[in-house]
Amino acid sequence: MIQAKNLKKIYSTEEVETTALNNVNIEIKEGEFVAIMGPSGCGKSTLLNIMGLLDNPTSGEYHFLGHEVSQHSERERAQLRKGNIGFIFQSFNLIDELTVFENVELPLLYLGISADERKEKAEAALERMSMMHRRNHFPQQLSGGQQQRVAIARAVVANAKLILADEPTGNLDSDHGNEVMKVLAELNEQGTTIVMVTHSPHDADYAMRVIHLFDGHVVTENMQEGFHV
């Protein structure tokens, strides 16, 4: 599903060049659950952004669903992203002005799906995350764990093949964190590919495979012996 070859990402400001990723080679197959770990500033989030088609690498190749996209324009990337990739963020990133239902519905809106179908799909996604009873609430009225469940519902509502999660439990206490990790694991069991950036070895235990990054390099890739369900 994902193939990265010699990925390089350099951020340059007027005076300094920072190499965030250096010759990263990664392959992720459909149905995998991969955790990316490493210390702050090692390039985890940069890698995730490139995988999520939010950003282009400075050089190297990146194949997503069989397309070489490293030179795609923003518009082309947006087209490919729509419906294929769902995002989950550490800080949830729900739109405060929209209700739970409207937040979940939003990706379908951008896909141009009819109102009836949007309603059906968004309700199904909320049902799946046990958040239907909160459908008319605004994000601030929910706990962190609930907000993240809404964000997950939003990530899956369009049947995304790939879910990218950037420290999904980072802002949650351990109970809510575990809850979210279980949901992700369930999604993975149902066939969704998941790539997750995390600091937490506990969360990483849910993944099949852990990629360790250090200063922009892949240092190790470990297959997990077995994982929690």
Binding site: G52, A78, R81, F87, L106, Y110
Partner: peptide, 11 residues
């Protein structure tokens, strides 16, 4: 908000 919308597929 713009970031979220873009991530969710807005052009």
């Amino acid at each position: 908000e713009v970031g979220i919308r873009k991530a969710l597929g807005a052009v």
